[in-house]
C-alpha cells in the first residue's frame, strides 16, 4: 500500500481553524465541506467521508509481541467512541498510534482527510487533536490555571523577548490564553482551585485538570486514555457528564478508553472492543452488550445470561 508522504504544505492546509466549525452543532460535517451530501448518505462505512478519524490496517508489534493487528476504525464527527478491552488488549497503543507517539508497522491514520504513516506529534495540537494520558501527565510545578493555559502554547507567536518586555502581541496573547483557560476552569468547576499547584491536588481533580488542559484548545478530536481510572463512582459519573458536556459544547469528537463498562455503556455512541490486538466488535452499546464474542473475551458474564443482567 503506497503511503502518501505528507509535506508541510499539506499540513498547513489542514491546520486547525477553530472559528470554522459551528458551535452548538454537536455532530455533522462542517458547513463548508464540499462532500457534505455524500457524507450524509454514506453512513458509517469505514473510511467514509464523514469520518474525522479513520485507521486503516494498523498493525504494531513490540519485538515479537503483537500489540495491534490490522485494526480498522472509523470515528464520525461528533461521536463519543469508546475503546474497551481486557488489559493488554492494545487500547493505549491505539491511542498512542493516533497521537503519533508510536509509529505503526503497517497501515495509516487518516485525520480529517489527510493520511499519515505516523501522525506528527509536534503538529498534533495544530491539527486539532488533544489527548490525556493514562498516568497523569500534568506539569507539577505549575498552577492549575497555568497548566490549563499551557494547552494553548501551540498558538503563541510572540517570542521570549516580547514576553519579557511585555511588548508586541505577547500582552494580547497572555490575556487571551488566561481568559480562555478561566472559561474552561469555570466549565469544569475548577475555578476555586485555579491557583493551586497541581501536584498538591487529589488524584480525581488532577484528572479533571488534565481534561481541562486538553479542552482549552477546543480540539476537534479529543483522545482520553482512561479518564476515570482510579476514581470513585461519583467522580466517574461526574467525569462522564463533563465529557458529554464538552462534546455538546465544543462539538468535539471523543475517543476514550475506559475500563468501567457501566460508564462506557451510558456514555458512548459506539464501542469498539479489542482483544489481543484485534478488533472483535464495533457497534452500539446495546449490540456490544449482546455480542457473544465480547462477552467471552471481556464482559465475563456467563453465556446463558441472555438479557445481559449484571453488566
Amino acid at each position: 500500500m503506497p503511503l502518501p508522504s505528507y509535506t508541510l504544505g499539506v499540513m498547513e492546509a489542514s491546520a486547525y481553524a477553530p472559528e470554522v466549525f459551528a458551535r452548538g452543532l454537536p455532530s455533522g460535517p462542517r458547513p463548508e465541506q464540499s462532500f457534505e451530501d455524500v457524507a450524509k448518505s454514506a453512513g458509517a462505512v469505514a473510511g467514509d467521508a464523514s469520518a474525522l478519524l479513520s485507521l486503516q490496517g494498523i498493525s504494531l508489534s513490540f519485538g515479537g509481541v503483537v500489540a495491534l493487528a490490522d485494526i480498522d476504525l472509523s470515528v464520525r464527527q461528533g461521536e463519543i467512541r469508546a475503546i474497551i478491552g481486557p488489559n493488554g488488549a492494545g487500547k493505549s497503543s491505539l491511542i498512542n498510534v493516533i497521537s503519533g507517539v508510536y509509529r505503526p508497522d503497517r497501515g495509516h491514520v487518516q485525520l480529517d482527510g489527510t493520511s499519515y504513516a505516523q501522525v506528527p506529534t509536534q503538529r498534533l495540537a495544530h491539527l486539532g487533536v488533544a489527548r490525556t494520558f493514562q498516568n497523569l501527565a500534568l506539569f507539577k510545578g505549575l498552577s492549575v490555571l497555568d497548566n490549563v493555559a499551557s494547552g494553548l502554547a501551540y498558538k503563541v507567536r510572540s517570542n521570549f523577548a516580547g514576553q519579557v518586555l511585555g511588548i508586541g502581541r505577547s500582552r494580547g496573547e497572555q490575556r487571551d490564553s488566561r481568559s480562555r483557560a478561566e472559561q474552561i476552569l469555570e466549565f469544569l468547576h475548577l475555578t476555586a482551585i485555579r491557583d493551586r499547584l497541581v501536584g498538591t491536588l487529589p488524584y480525581g481533580l488532577q484528572k479533571r485538570v488534565e481534561l481541562a488542559r486538553a479542552l482549552v484548545a477546543e480540539p476537534r478530536l479529543l483522545l482520553l486514555d482512561e479518564p476515570m481510572a482510579g476514581m470513585t463512582a461519583s467522580e466517574k459519573s461526574e467525569m462522564a457528564s463533563f465529557v458529554r458536556a464538552a462534546r455538546d459544547r465544543f462539538a468535539t469528537t471523543v475517543v476514550l478508553i475506559e475500563h468501567d463498562v457501566g460508564v462506557v455503556m451510558g456514555l458512548s455512541d459506539r464501542i469498539a472492543v479489542l482483544d489481543y490486538g484485534r478488533k472483535i466488535a464495533d457497534a452500539t452499546p446495546d449490540e456490544v452488550r449482546n455480542d457473544q464474542r465480547v462477552i467471552d473475551a471481556y464482559l465475563g458474564v456467563a453465556s446463558d445470561n441472555e438479557d445481559g443482567a449484571g453488566i
Partner: peptide
Amino acid sequence: IAIRDNETAARIIGI
C-alpha cells in the same frame, strides 16, 4: 517548566 515536568505531554500540546 512544562518540558522539565513532562516532555512528552509538552510535545503533544504543541510546545
